[in-house]
């Protein structure tokens, strides 16, 4: 079982990302839960969402020690403890441009970065001025964790999102571009 925590801002689609991942897991014959933060949400405010992917999942309690942390906005690293509870040898995946790749990682943590914002903008995935980074970040997540197959992710994105093709392309591009940091 893999437990993932998404850090984003209200409106960035962290919950949708978790749901897409569960849908992709279903296509791979796995189970999953997409769990939103249990509270009120404000646009722009820091939010979290979770996903649990695996076989025969029984637990439903909160994810305290995630295997993976996904950060949809690198500026959040200064605002919230995105590494809280992250397992030793856990993975962190950050939406970040190369120019700010001097991110300091906790010991033992494997860090990856992808410029999901740039990829989203290049595919015209912008809503009310916000780059829609959740689909590219999922592409990168699949690459670095193998939690689901890229094919299932792409199929799920196409089936579920209005701009499915563009989102799928963005996910594939991020899958190819994500790189190790630190």
């Amino acid at each position: 079982m893999l437990e993932i925590r998404f850090h984003g801002r209200g409106g960035q689609g962290a919950v949708t990302a978790a749901e897409l991942l569960v849908g992709a897991a279903l296509r791979d014959g796995l189970q999953g839960q997409a769990i939103p933060l249990f509270g009120a949400e404000r646009r722009g405010a820091p939010v979290v969402a979770y996903a649990r992917i695996g076989k025969d999942i029984k637990v439903r309690s909160g994810i305290r020690e995630p295997d993976v942390v996904v950060v949809l906005d690198s500026a959040l690293i200064r605002l919230v403890d995105v590494y809280a509870g992250l397992k030793k040898n856990g993975i962190v995946l950050i939406n970040s441009s190369k120019s700010e790749s001097n991110i300091k990682l906790p010991e033992g943590v494997k860090g990856y970065a992808v410029d999901a914002s740039k990829i989203a903008v290049s595919h015209g995935l912008v809503l009310s001025g916000w780059p829609l980074v959740n689909t590219p970040i999922l592409g990168a997540l699949v690459k670095v964790t193998g939690v689901v197959s890229l094919n299932s992710l792409v199929e799920e994105i196409k089936a579920r999102l209005p701009k499915g093709e563009l989102n799928a392309k963005a996910a594939i591009e991020a899958y190819e571009e994500v790189s190790l940091i630190g």
């Binding site: 749901e19 279903l26 189970q31 999953g32 839960q33 997409a34 769990i35 939103p36 249990f38 439903r60």
Partner: peptide
Amino acid sequence: DAFILTHTSEP
């Protein structure tokens, strides 16, 4: 259960 089921997505 509030949120644990109401707002959690699963198959």
